[in-house]
Every structure is written in C-alpha cells, then in structure tokens.
Simulated assay, not measured.
Amino acid sequence: MVKVTTSDILAITTNVKPAINYITRRNKPDSRREITLIDISGMLMRVTLFGDLATNEGSILEAEIKYKSVIALSDFKISIYQGDTSISSQIISTLCINPKIELASELREWFQLEKAAKAKGSPSTLFKNVKEIHISDIMQTSQNLIQARYCIFKEKITTILNRLEPWFYYCKGCDKNVDKNVSKECLNDKYRRIIDDLVPRYLVKILVENDTDNARVTLFDAAETLIGCKVEKFITEKK
C-alpha cells in the first residue's frame, strides 16, 4: 500500500543533478531532475523536480550549487511505500530560492556552523545525544516501524564479504546500477541510454558481531572513511 501526503519543506541544497529529458506514459516529452537537500535535523532528502521546476528553478540551483542555496518547497508530494520515502513535485508545487524569511536565515546559520565543525574535525552535533543500540534492537524491530534516524552501535567487524570488488558502477542520470562487463546501457526503462563514462561508487558489505548476535552491514560513500581513500584511487591501486 502506498501512503501519499503533501508537505512544505525548508532545506539547504547540497547536490543538483543534470536535467533528464524523457517521454511520459502519455507519449509527451517532459523533464526531471533530482536534487539532494538537508534540513536542520541533519537528514538528507532526495527530491525529484518535474517539468518547469526541473528546467527553470533546477537550472538556477545547478548553476549556483557552490552557494548551497536555501529553498522552500510547497505542496510537494511525499510517498511512502514499504518503508521507502519519495519526495517529488506535482502540478501545484512551488519552489522558492533563498526566501527572505527568518527561518531561512536560521537554517543558513546552522549549516555554516555544521560546516565549520566538520572542517575542524569535530563530531557533528547530531551525534552528541544519539541513542546507543545493539544488533538485537535492529533485528527485533519490525520493518514497518523502522524510521530513518541517527544511532550508534559498537560491534566488531569480522569479515568483508565482497573484499575482491567492493564497488559498483552507476548511471549519473538515475543512480541505477550498470554492469560494465555485460553492457554499457543504463537499464532503467525511462532513461535507457548508452553510458560512455561509468562512475564507480563504494559498496562494501561487512559482517559485524558481538558475543551473541551478528549482522550484515552495507556501506556506500561512508566506506571511504573505513578504507581511507576515494573509490577511484582504490580501484587504480588494486589493479
């Protein structure tokens, strides 16, 4: 069952992908663009812009990405299906860049403080009061009740399950996996195209355990901290 609601969002733009042109189910041309946002809770959100928002406001955000614009989203659709959250624009949605409101100034100030703290190597304020959990807490929680949140659990890494090739290649346009040994074609039906420049990304599968429990954990970009270098350098040195 898909649960759909609408919401207003105020957040900082952290990443903007290029716009993608495609043909809708009604055989009409349209555009989409994915942006990544962060709000004052520190949670990252992926938002999909469609139509004019993707080409107009989206182009401005892409051009000014280094300034990390504050944006206000109104009447955006939030869909939740089997625990996964999707945020996207609809016909009535609006997007305002750098709104002149007090909340936007507070968000900008928070973001600058967080950026400065990370530059100094200080732990993020998000982790100062987080709850410590155990493997059993995760395993015994129903999948339908799990929500995205920051936690800490301290266990021992016993095995890297895919140590021979802890990465994958993906399509920049839609984040779908691309098997470079089989085909250089993105297999997403909406955006099927040939990928000339394959982009690698960490995907490290580890086994962690304590005295009573064990669990498999998958690391994506966070694996760079564990391994100590960017994925491109790792692949080059491994070869």
Rank of each mutant, 00 (worst) to 15 (best):
Ser122Met: 12
Glu109Ala: 12
His134Tyr: 10
Ser93Ile: 03
Arg163Asp: 15
Lys100Gly: 13
Trp167Ala: 02
Ile97Arg: 00
Ile152Trp: 01
Ser142Glu: 08
Ser142Met: 05
Pro123Val: 02
Gln82Tyr: 13
Phe111Thr: 03
Gln140Ser: 12
Ala72Glu: 12
Cys171Asp: 01
Leu95Met: 07
His134Asn: 12
Ala104Pro: 01
Lys154Thr: 14
Ser69Leu: 07
Ile97Asn: 01
Tyr170Met: 05
Leu95Phe: 01
Ser93Thr: 02
Tyr150Thr: 08
Glu165Met: 11
Ile101Glu: 13
Trp167Lys: 09
Cys151His: 14
Gln90Leu: 04
Lys68Phe: 14
Glu114Pro: 03
Val130Tyr: 09
Glu165Pro: 04
Ala104Asn: 04
Lys68Arg: 14
Lys68Gly: 09
Lys100Ile: 13
Cys151Ile: 04
Leu145Phe: 14
Ser124Ile: 01
Thr125Trp: 08
Thr159Gln: 12
Asn129Ala: 09
Asp137Glu: 08
Ala117Arg: 14
Pro166Ser: 02
His134Pro: 06
Tyr169Pro: 02
Lys154Gln: 10
Phe168Asp: 04
Tyr169Thr: 03
Arg163Pro: 11
Arg149Val: 10
Phe168Trp: 10
Phe153Ile: 03
Ser79Gln: 09
Gln147Asp: 14
Ile138Ala: 03
Trp110Val: 09
Lys68Leu: 08
Trp167Leu: 10
Ala117Asn: 06
Ile71His: 00
Glu132Thr: 13
Lys120Ala: 06
Glu114Leu: 10
Ser105Trp: 14
Asp84Phe: 11
Phe153Asn: 02
Lys156Ala: 02
Ala148Ser: 13
Lys100Asp: 11
Ser142Ile: 06
Trp110Cys: 06
Asn144Met: 05
Glu109Ser: 10
Gln147Tyr: 08
Pro166Ala: 02
Tyr169Met: 04
Thr94Ala: 15
Ile133Trp: 00
Tyr170Val: 02
Ile80His: 06
Ile133Tyr: 00
Leu95Pro: 00
Trp110Ala: 06
Phe153Tyr: 03
Asp75His: 12
Phe127Thr: 08
Asn162Glu: 07
Ile138Phe: 07
